[in-house]
Amino acid sequence: MAVSDAVAALPAKPENRQARTAWGLTAPALALMVSILLVPVIVAGILSFTNYSLGNPGFDWIGTQNYERLFTRSTYEKMFIATFTYVVTVVPISVGLGLGAALLVHSLGRIGDIYKTIYFLPVMATLLAMAIAWEFMLHPTIGMVNRTLAMACGTWFEVIPFFANGCAEGFPLWLGDRDYAIWVVCFIGIWQGFGFNMVLYLAGLTSVHRELYHAAEMDGAKSGWEKFWLVTWPALGPTTVFVVTISCIRAFQVFDTIEAFWPQGGGPNKSAYVMMFAIFEKGVQQNLIGIGSAITMLFLVFVMFLTLIQRWLVERKVHYG
C-alpha cells in the first residue's frame, strides 16, 4: 500500500486519482497472489534444502541431500517411472482418442451430439466416485469386467492366449497385480480425459473453413485421408498444442484414482507411486517436509517447463497466421 500512500501525497490530478483507485482495486488480488501462490513456491524452495518437520522448533540445512535422495533411492526411481509411464501413456492416447472421436462426431452432424454428451460425462463426474465404481467393476470375483471376460470362455475367444490363460487360471486381479495396476490407472485416466479433448477439438473443427477443403480438392487431394493431413491437421495445430499441454499438466497431477485404490503405498510394489501421491505421503502423512518440498519443486519445474513450451509453440504458430 506504500505506493498508494505516496500517490495520495501528490496533488490530486485525475491520472493520479485513477492510479490510486487502480492500485486499490488490484491490491486484494495482488496480496493474495503473492501470499497464496508466490510465497509457497519460495517456502517449498527453501524447505527442500532442510530436514524440517511440522512440530519441530527449528531445522537444519542439509544442502542438496533431499534432491540427491530423489535421484538415488529406488523408491523415487519407481516414482519417476510410474509418473512418466502414466503421462506418456495417457497423453497421446487421450489426445488421439479425443481427436478421433471429434472427427467422427463432427462428420455425423447433429446426431453426433448425443455421443458428445455421453463422452463428456466422465469429465463432469467426481473422479473419486468413479474410481470407486471402477474398482467394483474390476473386482476379481464379483466385478463386471471379469464376469464379462469369463463369458468368452468356451468360445473361439480362447484362441487368444489372454483368454486361454484367464479361463484356465482365473482372470487378472487388475488392481492387485503389479503388472496391471499402473495400466488400469492409465486406462481410467484416458476414460476420464478424452471427452475433454474431444470437446476442444470439436471447437477447433468448427473453425476450419470449408473453402480450404475445396482448395485441397483442386490441388488433387482425393481421399479423406489426404484432406485430413493437408487441411484439418494443420488447421488444428494450435488446438493440438493446447490439448497436449493441458493433458500433460493434468496427467502429472493424477492422485484421486491412486489414493482411492491404494490408500497406502501407491499400488502393488509401488508400481503406481506417482509424484502427487509421493508429495502427499512423504510431506503430509509422514511429515518429511524436506523431501516432500523437493518433489514439489521438481514437479513445478516439469509443469512450468511444459507450459513455457506451449506458449512458445503458440506464439510461433501465430506468425504463420
Binding site: A19, A22, W23, T26, P40, A44, Q253, T307, L308
Partner: peptide, 29 residues
C-alpha cells in the same frame, strides 16, 4: 485503468498462471 505498474501486475498474473495450486499444496498446508 491506466496506472504505473500495470504491466508488471499483468506480468505477475501471467506468471502465476503457470503455478497449479495442487502442486504447491505441501507449502500451503
Amino acid at each position: 485503468l491506466r496506472f504505473w505498474g500495470r504491466e508488471a501486475v499483468f506480468g505477475l498474473v501471467l506468471f502465476c498462471l503457470l503455478i497449479p495450486v495442487h502442486a504447491i499444496a505441501l507449502p500451503l498446508y
